[in-house]
Nucleic acid binder design. Structure first.
Lengths: 146, 146
DNA sequence: TCGGGTACTTACCTTCTAGTAAGTGCCGCG
DNA sequence: CGCGGCACTTACTAGAAGGTAAGTACCCGA
């Protein structure tokens, strides 16, 4: 049965949003999917160094149940499954942008390490992504969620 | 020692921000403090129905260590301690606003219950807060964090 | 003197979250 | 024929997060 978000009762919007984003890899999955548009299981796994297959599937399933990601199965051999963001996923990613910017600023403030595992972005040094980070990308597509 | 946020290494801004917000009551504490400006321990406890004293203190201590809340002790009897948001806390709250709006919309979409424990806002029905929720309040004070 | 309020602290226990490691069925490549 | 890749599934386990309940030290009003 796992736990695809409690679906309420919620105390406020943050509560509901957190319910859907909490999970060690979810915001990263959101990001990766947003960056690449569509990804196969193994691509996601390689794109999120450190994630276990169990957690990756579990999170993907929950996010699918929560209407954030779309799962397209191609019945061929070897098996092929493509994951992509739904428009809710895209808008959630956009809603996370300010939080990402706040976090990036915090990293600077406290002088914390920003560690990006190898192959995370193709080997570019962290400094390149420091300012832009993850927020900007999708903003065009979901500027005013309403 | 507890765990006042790992302080990195972080993989991205979201990671760092989540590190600081994760905790069942933290976003609610942030909100309550933002609404009231300054609150005593017992006031916070009454304002967050369901929170235990242990969790409330633990979260307040972590948030203090993370530079989000300020703790002012008045050496008098009976003891008096006042909690308030630092400017980082205020800006974090502002950064959470879009997420709160997204969550509020999601609650509407999935038709989830929005349960506000009695005395949460002084007894007003949930509908009153539905649209405004928590986002708007602080936005004036921290519109463009950077 | 008793109960209640102030602000915590402590010990213990349960539940949740994530990690490890192995197995499944199917195929192509060498 | 065995290895590796695909997309999973399953069982077991460790650790973190959170809940319960009690205790601390002081004072005030009834």
């Amino acid at each position: 049965m796992s736990t695809p978000a409690r679906r309420g009762p919620y105390v406020c919007g943050i509560d509901a949003a957190m319910d859907v984003v909490s999970g060690k890899w979810k915001s990263l999955i959101l990001w990766d999917l947003d960056q690449h548009g569509t990804r196969r299981f193994a691509e996601l796994r390689r794109g999120l160094p450190g994630v276990s297959e169990k957690m990756l599937i579990q999170h993907l399933r929950e996010m699918e149940a929560d209407g954030l990601v779309h799962r397209e199965v191609y019945r061929e051999v070897p098996p092929k499954v493509e994951y992509s963001l739904t428009e809710h996923g895209v808008s959630l990613n956009a809603a996370l942008a300010p939080l990402g910017r706040w976090g990036t600023e915090r990293i600077r403030r406290i002088g914390a390490e920003k560690v990006v595992p190898p192959s995370w972005t193709g080997g570019r040094p962290a400094a390149d992504r420091d300012a832009s980070d993850r927020p900007a990308v999708t903003l065009r597509g979901a500027g005013s969620p309403g």
